[in-house]
């Protein structure tokens, strides 16, 4: 049992390392042998030089922090508003009838369509990007929280009635814990969405950040810096998802994954 556990944890590092290692090797070989022209994709050496340059000047750190803080703010706002809204939609029929079409309309509308208004109302920079993140993530979080509430087994409500869990207690001690496992999945999906919108938002309505780094590098035809931006975005996105995945191990949530 113990050796199996150790082997699993070694493999969970070894296998992904092999995948990334192979990709790096292909990249390096293709560049070295001239299959991959520098006009179309930077060489690994150019990438490393570009990375060092950006890191040394401090602009990589600045852009990373700008992007992270926007995602953090937009995500926090979306979760803080979206989860309660979804719980209300799931429990109050009137709210559902009134708001569901609007939320579905907003969800079907690409958040990028809001870019002109975001710039017009708020101006280029932090606020506009956060606005775009919220307008993308909030409807998704609210709708999927609502679906989670709708999927709660009826027997839980009958038990709630027998044990006198009414009103606010029904909400906090039955409905909320019952949807937690699904909520964690929602939070992970929403995080991915925020990350996508952040990049697009910064490219079109930002003046700093990793998205803007790519946009700026594109204007200057710095392919190496484009890849630097891409790598940072991908790695940080993975890290955020990993952090959220730890939630699934909490005792009040694990039941939803262990059955």
């Amino acid at each position: 049992m113990d050796t199996k556990h150790i082997r699993n944890s070694i493999n969970s590092w070894l296998y992904p390392s092999l995948t990334f290692g192979t990709l790096l090797l292909i990249w390096w070989l293709a560049s070295a042998r001239g299959y991959l022209s520098e006009q179309f994709f930077p060489t690994p050496a150019a990438f490393v030089t570009g990375f060092r340059e950006e890191f040394a000047s401090g602009s990589l750190l600045r852009d990373t922090l700008a992007s992270l803080s926007r995602v953090a703010a937009g995500y926090a706002l979306s979760v803080a508003a979206g989860v309660p809204l979804g719980m209300i939609l799931g429990t109050v029929l009137g709210a559902r009838l009134a708001l569901l079409p609007l939320l579905n309309f907003l969800r079907s509308l690409s958040p990028l369509a809001w870019i002109p208004f975001a710039i017009f109302w708020i101006g280029i920079g932090h606020g506009a990007v956060i606005f775009l993140i919220v307008i993308a993530a909030l409807p998704t979080i609210a709708l999927s929280t609502m679906a989670a509430v709708a999927g709660i087994p009826k027997v839980y409500f009958r038990v709630a009635q027998d044990y006198d869990l009414k009103g606010i207690h029904r909400l906090t001690r039955v409905i909320f814990p019952a949807i937690l496992p699904q909520l964690v999945t929602t939070l992970r999906v929403a995080m991915g969405l925020c990350w996508l919108v952040m990049v697009a938002g910064e490219m079109l309505a930002g003046n700093t950040g990793l998205g803007y780094l790519i946009h700026d590098a594109n204007n200057g035809l710095r392919l190496d810096l484009i890849v630097v931006g891409m790598v940072m975005i991908g790695l940080l996105g993975m890290l955020c998802d990993r952090l959220l995945m730890f939630l699934t191990r909490l005792p009040g949530i694990r039941w939803g994954y262990d059955r």
């Binding site: 087994p153 027997v155 027998d162 044990y163 814990p177 019952a178 937690l180 039941w255 059955r259």
Partner: peptide, 26 residues
């Protein structure tokens, strides 16, 4: 007062044995 024992899955899965029993003693 009336309470029902259900066929299966009537326990709250997010509560421990103690937590579920304590529901009966509000």
């Amino acid at each position: 007062t009336t309470r029902t024992v259900h066929q299966a899955d009537g326990l709250y899965p997010w509560l421990t044995v103690e937590g579920n029993l304590a529901l009966g003693l509000p």
